[in-house]
Design a protein around this nucleic acid. Sequence first.
DNA 1: TTGTAGGCGTTATCAG
DNA 2: CTGATAACGCCTACAA
Lengths: 349, 349
Amino acid sequence: MSDLSDDPTAPGGTRRRKAATIRDVAQAAGVSTATVSKFINGGQRFTREVEDRLTTVIRELGYVSNPLARGMITGQTGNVGIVILDILNPHFTSLVKGASRVARQAGLNLLFTDAAEGEMPELAMLQALSRRVDGLVVSARLSDASLDWLVQAGPPAVYYGGRTSHPGCFSVGSDNSEAALMLGRHLRDLGHRRIAYVGFSGARWSADRHAGLLRAFEGSGVELRLHDVQAPVPEEGERIASSVLLCSEPPDAVVAYNDLLALGLMSQAQVLGLNVPGDVSVAGFDNIIYSRYTSPALTTVDMGSEAVGAIAMQRLVERIRGEAAGGGHETLIAHVLPRGSTRRRGERA
Amino acid sequence: MSDLSDDPTAPGGTRRRKAATIRDVAQAAGVSTATVSKFINGGQRFTREVEDRLTTVIRELGYVSNPLARGMITGQTGNVGIVILDILNPHFTSLVKGASRVARQAGLNLLFTDAAEGEMPELAMLQALSRRVDGLVVSARLSDASLDWLVQAGPPAVYYGGRTSHPGCFSVGSDNSEAALMLGRHLRDLGHRRIAYVGFSGARWSADRHAGLLRAFEGSGVELRLHDVQAPVPEEGERIASSVLLCSEPPDAVVAYNDLLALGLMSQAQVLGLNVPGDVSVAGFDNIIYSRYTSPALTTVDMGSEAVGAIAMQRLVERIRGEAAGGGHETLIAHVLPRGSTRRRGERA
DNA sequence: TTGTAGGCGTTATCAG
DNA sequence: CTGATAACGCCTACAA
């Protein structure tokens, strides 16, 4: 195996060639390192001659300033971190997409952490991460100990997904209770009387969504039953489907904690011989892309996942730059998207 | 708004308290910084007294070593980068999941870059990224200029998705042509005679998959038509559906470049009044999670997305540690997953 | 406009 | 076992 390395004894292939430093550039251009530094960082004018020489030399040497060394002086890493619960959940995927775009536009690199992979204690993970970033976008669904530490000793942070109990925090998210209220009213207006909510108690938002449904059905005589799964994934929806749907007085509508669960529920309902929405309506939350491509298409609530990610990162960038206006919670409006999986009771296709 | 900051004039909320340095620890414990450093990094024994004092002081001060400063001297950042094409595509999401898990286990942070967000030139993005990481997992679908630079001047890299033309490179991926060959044989064996391939010429793999289909149908009298879309997304599948399916001699099977396209195609086929698989079979690639939850469930080819991500990162970690055995390409076996969207011609439900 | 020099926090070397 | 000290590459007063 041949390569272009300086060091042919490099193990396992090409060893990285030692990169040019600011001193190499200074020497080659016949100026001081300070001049090079100012040239790189802009904001000063130079002799035509110096400018030309520097431009040439820098290109020839392929010089790129070392972010670590720079960071030591400026105290800025040029990185921001994002901590999410599970990248396989399209809701978080969209969140990352939005955050990633804004970070990129701000010239910041994104340090990604999937908390679902956590063998490491959450707090230790946050502490390790925090020294490598200028700020953090994190899920509000962290332990109180982690949140306390973050607020007191951590880098600037923006929380997504819910209002935190800490004052002075920045957070952004959709109102889960309100979203569920709207979905509940939609179902009530369609004439449903017996509704099952398949929640995921491992998520804080699940209780909010349940509460919203309760509000929607308050005094309307609608019966709301509560189920719970171990994880917000399609497999769990499939698993719990029979016990939700085949009981003695089966529900005429099922609301799932999220679209993934709803996908599994709907699929298994059809396997069990039920017609959706003829026999039972199904609805979820998050408006993941795939909810459009089931048959029937899944009624869901758009929680603005990508926008939440983008806004959270936008606020973080502002905080890092010292432009932030103060703490507080920003709430996005959720939208119910009625689709084929919910239908008025009494109607037939 | 009140906070616990040292500096009440901090803009936009809490300013990060200046973290304890190794010198603070040394002074408080009455030892030298060198001793503290060795204590932190292990691999040496100490007096019981020193050990106790250091343990105490470090905890009290909450000291965590500064990764930037350490990186300057060790030459290691403790970060690895991953460059993918579009995180919204579940294939890449799984890839990141696998890579993330392995990186975490190796104690490395993951710097994530979504190339689809690229206003910045690809090469510039890579150069900026490369100084911040010890290694890179990147898509082989980069421009030749980028690959050249990466091989010559970049950090250790592992390419996923295809064999690169550069010798001495590490790459890992599934064999697209072989995968398509298997899928093609499956369709041929089911008795299909007129097959449409909806490719995405923007991806290198698409040509490989087309070639695999051609091999499968060689000399069998099966007709293979080629279509092309602008992006590998469901919307494009929907858009092209009518022109693929409603022509004068419509195909009896459609193979899409990936599952996302297939989802859109299948959905729109049903809107157009066609029965899948009765009138036309549909199949895709990647085995994204959602392909199980369409109706009918989508026949697809499992390309081992998450495993590819994990293996790529595993090889990268080995290279970084100098344990790598040499360059080369690692090929994963793809599996055809026959599901409800493909059915033998002549059979009826 | 340009140069000099000090220091950011850590590790590695070498001496005690 | 422990300590003093020189780097690592860069930025930033301050001086010229």
